[in-house]
């Protein structure tokens, strides 16, 4: 399992343009808002958490198509399923690799972006705290959607259509936690959703991978 993760990370490092594309998309999309809405700090600071959250969600979707797509096309998926890991284990490693190469960098870049959007400095750590389960949930649900749409025509279009509705509860509680005066309840809700998705999403993804490989 560790060997597969190391290999995935090495591949991501060698093909770092793919990884960088998602991060640049995040930066550029979030930068467009001040241009469209004007530089008024009051307006920006109110909507900043929402902008960061939505842009991070959309950016994290970008690498999902290649998450299994490349392995499916070149025959590596068969080898992964025959590597001695369970199909759910393969999906879990892929989820981890996606989070480490996309979710974590997004989380780090979100800090300077939120400052740029005039968020009060004392709110930034809380926003990052909500994005931690947020990006993890997106990696989990995104891996599931990527394996379900594997081999389908237009999978790149289908995948956001499956992932984004599933992410709505996360988005609601994530943004609520980032802006509420008492964020504990919303944070606990996020944690509860993470605890649900952590075992279930890789299992579902594994079943979908087996079906795709048939």
């Amino acid at each position: 399992m560790r060997g597969m993760l190391a290999r995935e990370l090495r591949l991501a490092w060698r093909q770092s343009a793919d990884t960088a594309a998602a991060l640049l998309f995040f930066v550029i999309a979030a930068t467009l808002f001040p241009f469209a809405l004007g530089p008024d700090p009051h307006v920006l600071s109110v909507i900043a958490p929402g902008i960061i959250w939505v842009c991070a969600l959309l950016a994290a979707l970008l690498p999902l198509e290649r998450l299994f797509g490349a392995d499916f096309e070149d025959g590596t998926l068969d080898l992964l399923l025959l590597s001695g890991l369970t199909a759910g284990g393969v999906a879990a490693v892929k989820t981890t690799a996606h989070w480490l190469t996309t979710g974590l960098p997004l989380l780090i870049i979100a800090a300077p972006l939120s400052v740029m959007l005039r968020m009060p400095a004392e709110q930034v750590p809380l926003l990052l705290l909500t994005l931690l389960p947020g990006t993890l949930l997106l990696s989990l649900l995104g891996t599931m959607a990527a394996s379900i749409t594997l081999g389908a025509r237009r999978s790149a279009v289908l995948m956001p259509l499956i992932t984004l509705p599933l992410m709505i509860p996360t988005l609601i509680f994530g943004c609520a936690a980032a802006t509420a005066p008492h964020p504990q309840a919303a944070l606990l809700m996020l944690a509860a959703m993470l605890v649900m998705a952590l075992p279930l999403a890789p299992l579902a993804a594994g079943a979908a991978l087996r079906a795709a490989a048939e």
Binding site: L11, E73, G75, L82, G84
Partner: peptide, 18 residues
Amino acid sequence: HAKRIAWLGHLDAVKFAL
């Protein structure tokens, strides 16, 4: 069962980046 077998499909599963 997977640990008993070695698989060679009709595709080579060779990664260009490695």
